[in-house]
């Protein structure tokens, strides 16, 4: 065990996992909020755009999107995010993780929007707030609070889904390294548990934090 710890940079691999998670989480939150706004907008074509986005990305396997980004977009179409090969793969992994989880963030937010009674949006319009102002002042603040619990689930899923990036990243993040260790040293339960523990350590605090937040921020009705 100590052998493996000294031979392989397990902390480095988890550090990459953490970076992937943080960057993709930010990307997914921003993009997901935009898609959610499209889905509740008064303009039909924008709503359609938002709905299509969610349907496409929620229903396509993440592995497929990862492979498509490198084989399809990068190799065939030549869209490179960096000249450096491994950096290119890393950036594509962030983009794909963001784009994919944005669909789930959107749905989490929409479930949050559904916790806001329709009458509040009407009251906001009735005092003369524009669509943008009603969103900012009335709908989204409550939607975010109502969406805290489902957003927590999305973030935890995202952290675990960074392992899918191994298909294009090779061994730089945790799951890729685990595969490499298994290949070189033979399968070992302790190694496996070590990596599993790593993920639990990353995700468990989020679970606790979000449960706590969702109770604290809940809008009383």
């Amino acid at each position: 065990m100590g052998d493996i710890l000294s031979k392989y940079d397990i902390f480095g691999a988890f550090w990459v996992t953490i970076q992937l998670s943080v960057l993709s989480a930010i990307g997914a939150l921003v993009l997901g909020t935009i898609v959610a706004i499209l889905r509740v907008s008064p303009v039909r074509i924008l709503r359609l755009l938002g709905t299509s986005y969610v349907n496409v990305f929620r229903n396509t396997p993440l592995t497929l999107l990862m492979v498509f980004s490198i084989l399809g977009l990068s190799f065939i179409l030549g869209i490179n995010l960096s000249q450096d090969l491994s950096r290119n793969a890393y950036l594509w992994a962030v983009v794909v993780l963001s784009v994919y989880h944005a669909a789930f963030v959107c749905e989490a937010l929409r479930s949050g929007v559904n916790t806001v009674p329709a009458g509040q949006a009407e009251a906001a319009r009735a005092i003369g707030l524009t669509f943008g102002q009603s969103l900012r002042e009335v709908l989204l603040p409550q939607a975010f609070r109502g969406a805290v619990a489902p957003l927590g689930s999305v973030l935890i899923a995202l952290i675990k889904n960074t392992t899918v990036a191994a298909v294009i990243l090779g061994t730089s993040e945790a799951a890729g390294l685990l595969a490499k260790i298994t290949e070189n040293e033979g399968a070992s339960l302790p190694t496996f548990f070590l990596f599993a523990l790593g993920f639990v350590i990353l995700t468990l605090p989020f679970g606790i934090l979000f449960t706590h937040l969702s109770q604290r921020l809940a809008v009383k009705r």
Binding site: V116, P117, G119, Q120, E122, A123, A124, R125, A126, I127, G128, L129, T130, E137, V138, P141, Q142, R145, V219, K220, R221
Partner: peptide
């Protein structure tokens, strides 16, 4: 929106902003 600002509306269900 400007015109609505000049027209007050009171609903059966109050519709105060809960947050």
């Amino acid at each position: 929106a400007q015109l609505r600002a000049d027209v007050g509306m009171v609903f059966q269900s109050f519709n105060l902003f809960a947050h």
